[in-house]
């Protein structure tokens, strides 16, 4: 990677305690477990994984929306520096002007009692960014135009809009305070395919025009492949492979990435079925398996995988994976 990363995650863990205070050992959900990633400024960083893999928790951790158990998250931009682990309240307010979240469900994310104008303007008022109503209105109109929202629609309420239009409103709200870093958590999962393409194109052009950095969380590998410059694959709280998109697809290094790829139903009815079929389901993050966490489902697992946790190795420039036998497998 060239230059300084915008977000640098080092050995980050997020564990949630479960159960009441009883005798004996306290149990934890290992939602994110010793993750290290660097996100370069101006990139579309994709995060894929099945449900329960910890993608959302990792995304929230980068916004300090969940308590960090251990490890560090560092945000660096133009000499401004935030260490999210022990950030002061005042700094956290500053940080949140720079970082925003786009939600999955545009039907649930917008208050039905507020007009579109008020929804988009709310962050400006809460963070006291603008000083007058005229200034707020101008900023709202500017961002609405950028997100292709009809200015006439600003006076309406969200119920009048379709899913795609609502998602454009949530994007406008996230962008109105001019953030530098955005976490888009499954932001097209609730949309129909014809609309999905429209929103992805919008995000892409906004990213280029405004020089934004995205963490794009999705369960859909084909969407991620099309949108992101860099992809990290998550399984049971850990990142198993991380690489620039083209390298990840051309030269897959982890068996889990390969199975995810081959599980996508192909559009060609006569496509050769080379799918590696995974047995079983994702294990519970309360008692994750020892050794390599994927060994319980991995078709290539050997004895070593059951006891020894694989190292995070660099196979090619900027292409990392955690698998003992990656060189031997023809993936």
């Amino acid at each position: 990677m060239t230059g300084e990363p915008l977000i640098s995650v080092h050995d980050l863990s997020v564990h949630f305690p479960i159960g009441g205070a009883g005798f004996g050992q306290k149990r934890f959900v290992h939602a994110v477990d010793r993750v290290s990633i660097d996100i370069a400024p101006g990139t579309f960083f994709g995060l894929v994984g099945e449900s329960g893999s910890g993608k959302t928790t990792l995304g929230r951790a980068l916004l300090k929306a969940v308590p960090l158990t251990s490890g560090h998250v560092q945000y660096t931009e133009n000499g401004i520096d935030f260490d999210l682990r022990d950030i002061s309240k005042a700094d956290l307010k500053e940080y949140r002007k720079r970082c925003q979240l786009i939600f999955q469900d545009p039907y649930a994310a917008l208050s039905p009692r507020m007009t579109v104008r008020d929804i988009i303007a709310e962050p400006l008022e809460v963070m006291k960014i603008t000083s007058s109503r005229e200034e707020t209105d101008e900023r709202v109109r500017e961002i609405a135009a950028m997100c292709r929202i009809n200015i006439e629609h600003l006076r309406r309420f969200p119920h009048a809009f379709s899913g795609g239009q609502r998602q454009r409103i949530s994007i406008a709200r996230a962008l109105v305070c001019k953030p530098r870093f955005l976490v888009a958590d499954e932001c097209v999962a609730a949309l129909d395919v014809s609309i999905q393409a429209d929103i992805l194109n919008l995000l892409n052009s906004l990213q280029k025009d405004l020089g934004l950095t995205f963490l794009f969380i999705s369960h859909d590998l084909s969407v991620v492949a099309h949108t992101c410059d860099h992809v990290a694959v998550m399984y049971l709280g850990q990142i198993v492979e991380s690489a620039p998109t083209k390298k990840l697809f051309a030269n897959t290094r982890h068996p889990y990435t390969k199975t995810l790829l081959s599980a996508i139903p192909h559009l060609d009815p006569d496509a050769e079925k080379t799918a590696i079929k995974l047995e079983g389901e994702i294990p519970s993050p309360i008692n994750p398996p020892p050794g390599c966490k994927f060994h319980t489902r991995c078709p290539y697992a050997r004895d070593r995988c059951k006891v020894e946790s694989p190292e995070w190795r660099e196979f090619d420039e900027d292409h990392f994976a955690a698998c003992h036998f990656s060189e031997e497998l023809s993936l």
């Binding site: 999905q196 393409a197 590998l221 969407v223 492949a225 790829l261 996508i264 559009l267």
Partner: peptide
């Protein structure tokens, strides 16, 4: 409008 895994560079065309 569907993303094609065999052609990553192709633009997505929404309806």
């Amino acid at each position: 409008a569907l993303p094609d895994l065999d052609d990553l560079g192709a633009p997505l065309t929404p309806v």
